[in-house]
């Protein structure tokens, strides 16, 4: 579904992605972890071309993401993306945030789009917030709306970039439980996170990144019990303390 082939990226002289080769299969849930500055956020942002790459190829659903021949907007509408900072549109109500893409891209009427949006809101447990504005929501509620918004175009793939890092601790649980439900729904998912308990529970595979490379690619049982690479061992032991 998503494949990286010799992907490299530089910021000036600093190489932040070094010759990445990896694949995510359809329906798989991959959790990406690693110390800060390891390139995991950059990696996930290259998948829908929020970040350009300088070498290699990323293929999503058979389409070369960074080729100029690709219809980028069409590709992006098939990839849900959830940001650390939610990035809800503050001038629109919750429901308008969700129906924006279906209306503008599919040409749906407000009514038709709203019906589907209400179902999504119910799914993330916020059926009563349809007419609220983002400024009236807590962080956890905002992130759940952002997830509903990312799902509005029925994407086969959804990407999470540290979805709980900007949240107060008491709100992390409500967001993670929504993501867990989603993980069991058969959607292809990649999630950058530091929540190792969550990773152990839902991930099919865990990628451990450091200095722009994927050092480990293993099922959680293997990754947590006997990591191969010394840096992964150190990362895990630091997490436990």
């Amino acid at each position: 579904m998503i494949s990286f082939e010799n992907v490299s990226k530089w910021y000036g002289a600093h190489q932040c992605l070094a010759d990445i080769n990896a694949t995510v299969n359809s329906g798989e849930v991959v959790v990406v972890c690693g110390p800060s500055g390891s390139g995991k956020t950059t990696l996930i942002r290259t998948i829908n071309r929020l970040e350009p790459i300088q070498g290699g190829r990323i293929v999503v659903n058979g389409q070369d993401v960074h080729s100029s021949a690709t219809d980028l907007n069409r590709l992006r509408s098939g990839i849900g993306f959830v940001f650390q900072q939610f990035n809800l549109f503050p001038h629109m109500s919750v429901i308008d945030n969700i129906i924006l893409a279906p209306r503008k891209l599919r040409g749906l009427s407000r009514e038709a789009a709203s019906e589907a949006a209400r179902k999504l809101l119910a799914r993330v447990g916020l059926a009563d917030k349809a007419n609220s504005y983002p400024g009236q929501l807590s962080g956890g509620q905002s992130q759940r709306v952002a997830i509903a918004r990312a799902l509005a175009m029925d994407p086969p793939i959804i990407l999470f970039d540290e979805p709980t890092s900007a949240l107060d601790p008491e709100m992390v649980g409500e967001v993670l439980s929504v993501i867990k439900d989603l993980a069991h729904s058969g959607i292809t998912m990649m999630c950058v996170t530091h929540e190792m308990g969550f990773a152990r529970e839902v991930a099919d595979r865990i990628w451990f990144m450091d200095r722009g490379t994927i050092l480990e690619d293993a099922p959680p049982s293997e990754f947590f019990s006997r990591p191969n690479h010394p840096r992964a061992q150190r990362f895990l032991s630091e997490l436990r303390h």
């Binding site: 829908n48 929020l50 907007n73 069409r74 590709l75 992006r76 509408s77 098939g78 990839i79 993306f81 940001f83 900072q85 990035n87 809800l88 549109f89 503050p90 001038h91 924006l100 893409a101 503008k104 891209l105 952002a146 918004r149 990312a150 509005a152 175009m153």
Partner: peptide
């Protein structure tokens, strides 16, 4: 993040400007 979110939804430059950026 506002324009990134709009573009991630698949809106093109003009749609992102008109619906998300300019009103704010």
């Amino acid at each position: 993040g506002q324009i990134e979110a709009a573009r991630s939804l698949g809106l093109n430059y003009r749609q992102a400007m008109m619906s998300v950026v300019l009103p704010q």
